[in-house]
């Protein structure tokens, strides 16, 4: 395995990307979970799927677009979807969660249409749905690295504002911080991380990497900082371990990563029970 990483560029790409998203997804996930917005990641990943399907369709229909990286269009769709969710949340003030199924089914509907126009895509699409160890290119790695830098910088700089907004929205508003702008930036960050994570873990399982490590650390973390540290740690264990299993057992990494995350979750629930006997 180690020699494989040294030898094959695709493995380097997969592992480096995995290490980036293993930290990034739980990091934004912490805020997503405590703000009770977990469903948003599911909705956005379905919109990202529509973007991927759309760009695969473009590639298939226009030879000149064959070099287009679907990651860009996936990101554009995901960010667009996040803005749309915000719009809808404004329209349905008292049923804000309605925005989620609306966007989710919209995204899924579009995906199905693009896929059927293209008459199926086979392997490429399979990789996007369930993740892939071999499909991460150098240019994907660079894009994801850029997303990683931007998102972690924003989250660090806006940490205290995001904390306040998550803990007590009313207080955040009353305190006079630009909460609308901060919320907006946050949603865009979530959308970017979702699109960046799909290459490794797959669209259908992205949201689990945002929520499962966080759910595990919720069981015993003391304070918010600790919560972030544990979540990132669990995320990294899941992704690196999952990629390792995926490569050696020839399984889709989405599955192996999520199963490890679930195991960690179960262990932490048991640990919590045992500790509070």
């Amino acid at each position: 395995m180690i020699s494989g990483i040294l030898q094959f560029e695709f493995l380097q790409n997969a592992f480096l990307t995995g290490i980036i998203i293993g930290a990034l997804a739980p990091l934004v996930g912490v805020f997503v979970v405590v703000r009770r917005m977990s469903m948003i990641s599911d909705a956005l990943s379905h919109v990202a799927l529509a973007g991927i399907a759309f760009s695969l369709l473009l590639q298939k229909s226009f030879l000149s677009l064959a070099g287009l990286n679907p990651l860009y269009i996936g990101m554009a769709f995901s960010v667009g979807g996040s803005l749309f969710i915000e719009k809808l949340r404004g329209v349905y003030k008292h049923y804000q969660e309605l925005a989620i199924p609306i966007i989710m089914s919209g995204g899924m509907g579009l995906s199905v249409i693009f896929i059927s126009i293209a008459d199926g895509f086979n392997t490429d699409l399979y990789g996007y749905l369930f993740g892939s160890v071999s499909a991460v290119s150098r240019s994907d790695l660079y894009v994801i690295l850029a997303v990683g830098i931007v998102v972690s910088l924003m989250l660090t700089l806006l940490y205290k504002e995001l904390f306040l907004l998550s803990f007590d929205e009313e207080h955040a508003k009353a305190s006079g911080i630009p909460y609308k702008a901060i919320h907006f930036i946050f949603i865009v960050m979530v959308a970017l991380v979702i699109a960046a994570s799909m290459k490794i873990i797959g669209i259908l399982l992205v949201s689990s990497l945002m929520t499962l490590p966080v759910a595990a650390s919720l069981r015993f973390a003391k304070g918010f900082k600790q919560m972030i540290v544990y979540s990132v740690l669990f995320g990294e264990i899941s992704v690196v371990g999952g990629l390792f299993l995926s490569y050696n057992l020839n399984l889709a990494p989405g599955g192996t990563i999520v199963i490890i995350a679930v195991l960690i979750l179960i262990l932490s629930i048991l640990f919590d029970k045992w500790k509070n006997r």
């Binding site: 904390f163 306040l164 955040a172 305190s175 911080i177 650390s217 003391k222």
Partner: peptide
């Protein structure tokens, strides 16, 4: 949300955000 994973110190410090 009483399950919010924040310490008393963190909560009070959030009063200084602005």
């Amino acid at each position: 949300n009483s399950g919010f994973p924040a310490t008393v110190f963190e909560v009070v410090q959030s009063g200084l955000t602005k």
